[in-house]
């Protein structure tokens, strides 16, 4: 059984609408959908840009587990979410205490995550870290 989900292309600001067609929980193709800007048309990125979701490892592997290292000379090793969050948050709090909140900087992401994730990130930075040091790669 094929299923269609209407969504928005993640590759440029034209914001084309497209349908992701799935079979047995896997994407099999994309097709143009009637959006305000694209009226059913797509470029190559819209048509084939979903392929990375099948973890092709053509260029680099998908991240599937939290990775950690306690010293930069060590290799990364897999860890649990609890430990990854504990480590990251404890180290941030130590740095905040020692150098002040403005010693911390964060980015947003102008790519796949979307507006809500970015909203929560800037809230975390402003309300919890206590700094306005947040920016994104608007410039590329």
């Amino acid at each position: 059984m094929e299923k269609k989900v209407e969504t928005i292309c993640p590759y440029c600001g034209a914001g084309c609408h497209l349908n992701l067609v799935t079979r047995n929980g896997k994407i099999v193709r994309a097709e143009g959908a009637p959006g305000r800007t694209n009226e059913g048309q797509l470029c190559l990125k819209g048509l084939y840009g979903w392929e990375f979701l099948n973890d092709t490892k053509v260029l680099s592997p998908r991240l599937k587990k939290p990775l950690i290292r306690y010293s930069r000379s060590e290799p990364f090793h897999e860890t649990s979410w609890e430990e990854a969050i504990r480590f990251a948050s404890t180290r941030l709090m130590e740095i905040k205490k020692k150098y002040g909140p403005d010693a911390i900087m964060a980015t947003g992401s102008a790519r796949g995550p979307g507006n809500e994730a970015n909203y929560v990130m800037q809230k975390l930075v402003r309300a919890v870290f206590g700094t306005n040091n947040i920016d994104h790669c608007a410039r590329i």
């Binding site: 992401s109 102008a110 979307g114 970015n118 800037q122 590329i140």
Partner: peptide, 22 residues
């Protein structure tokens, strides 16, 4: 301005900038 990445407009809209809230 027609900008590069898909959601540059969005990240600006929701305050991922050092000088403005959402």
């Amino acid at each position: 301005p027609v900008r590069g990445q898909n959601n540059v407009q969005g990240t600006c809209d929701v305050g991922v900038l050092p000088n403005v809230f959402p």
